[in-house]
Amino acid sequence: MSQISRDEVAHLARLARLALTEDELDSYAGQLDAILEHVSQIQSVDVAGVEPTDNPLTDVNVFRSDHVEQCLTQSEALAQAPKTADGRFAVPRILGEAE
């Protein structure tokens, strides 16, 4: 028996402002139903006596401490750039921006 109907998928699509075709509604209804079936199988597993585990790893903080180090100056960073403008890297415009 199906746990989610095609109408429910259409309702969810409207809430999410998604325009779905009739074929997509049928396809997603089946996919969501399969997901819900898998979730119900997982929920039916007997976990009585199983100790909860929030994190099996014992590492607490694996980050190195910050150290201020010497870095390139602006002129050193721009020295090998193919093109610069106003002290910055010059790159081609993208996404149809105006010149």
Rank of each mutant, 00 (worst) to 15 (best):
M1W: 04
D66M: 06
R88G: 02
V39L: 14
A85M: 11
S40T: 13
T53D: 09
R64N: 11
N61T: 10
L25R: 05
I94G: 03
R64L: 11
A16E: 03
L95F: 14
R64S: 13
D33R: 01
Y28C: 00
R64Q: 10
L57E: 13
T21D: 06
A10T: 09
L72W: 08
L57F: 14
L95E: 12
E51T: 13
V50M: 09
A79G: 08
D26I: 03
D86C: 09
S40C: 06
A77G: 04
A77R: 08
A16C: 03
V91A: 09
F89Y: 10
S75V: 14
L78D: 01
Q70A: 12
L20N: 02
L95K: 11
L15D: 06
C71R: 06
V60T: 11
S44V: 07
F89L: 12
L20P: 03
L72N: 08
I35N: 02
Y28H: 02
L57Q: 07
Q70K: 14
A10Q: 07
V91P: 05
G87D: 08
V9Q: 00
S44C: 08
R17A: 15
T73H: 00
G87P: 07
D86Q: 09
A48Q: 14
N61M: 07
R93F: 12
Q74K: 13
Q43M: 15
E69A: 10
A16S: 02
G87F: 07
I4V: 12
L25N: 02
A29T: 08
E37M: 11
D54C: 05
C71V: 15
H11F: 10
H11L: 10
G49T: 05
V91N: 02
I4W: 02
S44R: 10
F63M: 05
L20M: 06
P92F: 02
A81R: 05
M1S: 11
D33H: 01
E97M: 08
E8Q: 09
L15E: 12
A19P: 00
D33V: 00
G96M: 01
V60N: 03
E24Y: 00
L57D: 12
G96D: 02
H38P: 08
T21E: 05
L25Q: 04
T58Q: 12
H67A: 13
V62R: 13
H38G: 07
D46I: 05
P82F: 01
S2W: 01
L12Q: 09
A81G: 06
K83I: 14
L36P: 01
I42V: 15
R93Q: 10
H38C: 12
D54S: 11
G87E: 07
Q74L: 11
R6E: 15
R93D: 11
V45L: 14
E76T: 06
A79W: 05
V47I: 15
T53S: 14
A19D: 13
E8N: 02
V50G: 05
I4Y: 01
E76S: 05
L18H: 04
Q70I: 15
P56T: 04
A90L: 13
Q80H: 14
V50L: 12
L72E: 10
A85T: 12
S75H: 07
G30W: 00
G96A: 02
M1D: 10
S44M: 12
D23L: 04
L18K: 06
T53I: 15
S2A: 09
A48K: 13
D66N: 08
